[in-house]
Design a protein around this nucleic acid. Structure first.
Length: 375
RNA sequence: GCACCGUUCGUCUAGUCAGGUCAGGACGCCAGGUUUUCAUCCUGGUAACACGGGUUCAAAUCCCGUACGGUGUACCA
């Protein structure tokens, strides 16, 4: 089967068709049998025989150039020296090289980057995979102007720009040593095409989270407090005199994202509304009611309600009474936090203050009551 | 189908060009330690050279083949 064009038609037919305004395209006449030698910065020498290439369309029937032509002309005019693009363009490279050659233009250096693969299964990552698996594939949230479809973005998911960039840079590239944290500036200095790997890289959400955790912990408490404040507003929390940066400092190592800060710090602002049933079962024992009642009396007498002071006093009391440290502290934590989580308990009660601490003990004592028997 | 590209722990990868330490690191996972809880943190562990030939004293590394995978094969980019 051959093309019906100026090469296969005789001159008169061609003129006739042209005069009649018959739509036509302009193609690149591919050399018959030639081995095109190309160089890719990442893959090295690549060869392909023109026999397997067809006469590509350069101008569409509407007169507009195709990507292939426009790309070469545009890059040449802009004096582009490096073309760095995804591996899916590699099969088009011979055409592009031949086009530069036909124009007698100097071709730029080409580098074809490995593809980002979907986390499960095979194939390159697509927007649909993100929607399906619940993670973003775009750096920023994006709305398709055509159909209004919204795609998730890493920024909107709570990833820091520096964490995202760091994570992405290491997908398909590495510095050749064991460093793995890079600022943008360091990447600019360190990145080189010859360290780019050839095979596709699968995105790993766990590692992305780990990067974010690293950068989050690295940020100052003040900066994180600024980011956390809108969340408090949203929850209608009035922090009063509470030192938000200090609180952030106590909990930031336990989270990967700013938005997770709330569930790790809500008890600094609100008394428990319910008590985690598993923790109750495990930590609220027969003696707990009595011990907590006694503890309350101990705490009432402390004037300087600092972390160090309450800790010393409470521990002395526990030793004196020969109660179990774990026994008392876990029950105490349950009353203050409502669950078996959170930072150093004495730090927590120092923040919420003596009055609130006593209130929460009363509240818990009322709700949990006295456990009569051990089952 | 054809062409091109690729293939080291579950994942990201070092090592391959200039063959020669029990194949190294990180994430994850597991165990132990620290701790009043959870998390962090520390220590340890788990786990890979796709397969088959060849070259060589010696192959993850060089050569050939096979398998598998990816991409491309649009008047898209």
């Amino acid at each position: 089967m051959s093309l019906r064009n100026s090469l296969t038609l005789d001159k008169q037919e061609v003129t006739e068709l042209l005069d009649n305004g018959t739509p036509y395209v302009i193609r690149f006449k591919m050399p018959e049998d030639r081995v095109v030698e190309m160089h890719d910065e990442i893959r090295g020498r690549v060869e392909v025989n023109t026999q397997v290439l067809d006469d590509k369309i350069l101008f569409k029937s509407d007169g507009m150039p195709t990507y292939h032509l426009a790309n070469i002309v545009d890059d040449h005019l802009m004096e582009i020296t490096y073309v760095i693009r995804g591996e899916e363009w590699l099969p088009s490279l011979p055409l592009h090289v031949l086009l530069y050659e036909a124009f007698e233009w100097e071709a730029p250096v080409f580098a074809h980057l490995p593809l980002l693969l979907k986390p499960d299964g095979k194939g390159k990552l697509s927007k649909r995979d993100g929607d399906r698996l619940g993670f973003p594939v775009f750096p920023l949230q994006w709305t398709d102007p055509k159909n209004g479809e919204v795609s998730l973005g890493y920024r909107e998911d709570g990833y820091f720009p520096e964490a995202f960039i760091n994570m992405l840079a290491l997908l398909g590239w590495n510095p050749g040593d064991e460093r793995e944290f890079f600022t943008l500036e360091e990447l600019v200095d360190t990145f080189s095409l010859d360290k780019v790997s050839k095979s596709g890289a699968r995105f790993d959400q766990d590692k992305a989270k780990w990067f974010n955790h690293h950068y989050l912990v690295d940020k100052s408490n003040e900066e994180l407090a600024q980011l956390f404040r809108p969340i408090l507003d949203e929850k209608n929390i009035n922090p009063g005199q509470k030192d938000i940066p200090y609180i952030i400092g106590l909990v930031k190592e336990r989270v990967n994202f700013v938005q997770e800060l709330w569930e790790q710090s809500s008890f600094f602002f609100l008394a428990p509304e319910e008590y985690d049933s598993k923790t109750v079962k495990k930590r609220w024992k027969t003696d707990s009611f009595t011990q907590m009642t006694e503890l309350k009396n101990v705490l009432v007498q402390i004037d300087e309600f600092t972390s160090e002071n309450t800790e010393r006093t409470v521990k002395n009391w526990i030793e004196q009474k020969e109660y179990g440290m774990g026994m008392v502290m876990n029950a105490f934590r349950l009353l203050i936090v409502g669950a078996a989580k959170g930072p150093h308990l004495f730090d927590i009660i120092a923040v919420i203050g003596k009055e609130e601490t006593l209130k929460r003990i009363d509240l818990g004592l009322n709700i949990l009551g006295k456990k009569e028997t051990v089952n």
